[in-house]
Simulated assay, not measured.
Amino acid sequence: MQERPPFKTLFAVPLHCEGCIKSVKSALSHVEGILNVDCHLEKQLVEVEGTAAPSKISASIQDTGKDCILRGSGNANSAAVCILETHAHNIENPVRGLARLVQVGPDFTIVDISLKGLASGTYQATIRQNGDISRGAASTGGVWEEDTRGSGARGKLGQIEVGTEGSGGIILDVGIAIWELIGRSMVLSSSTELSQQDDEATLVGVIARSAGVWENDKVVCSCSGKTVWEERVEQTGKGML
């Protein structure tokens, strides 16, 4: 795999003064791979350039005591997102993970997966042939490209270790372009077999396009009329990371 090229990531962060900016920049100065940080006080936005994964950046910003919301990554048509949910019955908050995908070069994409609320153990991450998650992993088809490439299928992303606290994550560099993934599904499972929808240890989600840097800097949603921070509270209550 080629060396990861730098890319830009944009976060909404509640910045109130130059002291806030200094605090954020100081925290990010300790994150490996960050080349430049621009804070926009009036727009309440932080623009980061480098090779660090979005989850690493957001965690460092949150360590300052400030919340942050990812607003975009990479260039236009180069980013995607996948909300990973369990299809087990009678689960109040089914969301258990989030995958952020950013294409940073020709056929070169970063897959940044974060998980929570799972039983400890090893989970297999795969891209499936289609985006039908109506019956959980059982309706997503086989692993993408496994029928033609076997063990070399690009749909086999790798393993994620979940600790005793129920959380885990992994950052992968894969030889895939974003356009190849939109509309397919991602599955994480503790089993190598196709799981049924009532398997609590299996997560599924559809990969959808997301905004690039500066493609979505709105503060108020035109659909709900809520600010991004009001939506953040609402979505966090539903289990979103």
Rank of each mutant, 00 (worst) to 15 (best):
E49N: 02
G50S: 04
P54A: 01
S60K: 12
I61R: 04
D63N: 10
C68G: 03
I69C: 04
I69D: 00
G72A: 09
A76D: 07
A76S: 11
N77T: 01
N77F: 09
V81Y: 11
I83D: 02
L84Q: 06
A88Q: 15
I91M: 12
P94W: 09
P94A: 06
R96G: 15
R100V: 05
R100E: 14
L101G: 05
V102G: 00
V102C: 13
V102H: 04
Q103I: 03
V104C: 14
G105I: 04
P106I: 05
P106W: 07
V111C: 13
V111H: 03
I113A: 05
I113K: 05
L115H: 07
K116F: 02
Y123L: 11
Q124E: 13
A125K: 08
I127L: 15
Q129E: 15
Q129G: 00
N130C: 08
I133H: 00
S134E: 08
G136K: 06
G141P: 11
G142K: 08
E146A: 14
T148R: 13
G150P: 08
G150T: 07
G150W: 01
A153R: 06
G155I: 11
K156V: 07
G158S: 04
G158Y: 08
I160M: 08
I160F: 09
E161A: 12
V162C: 11
E165N: 15
G166E: 12
G169M: 03
I170C: 08
I170P: 00
I170M: 11
I171L: 05
L172W: 13
L172H: 03
D173C: 05
V174W: 06
V174N: 01
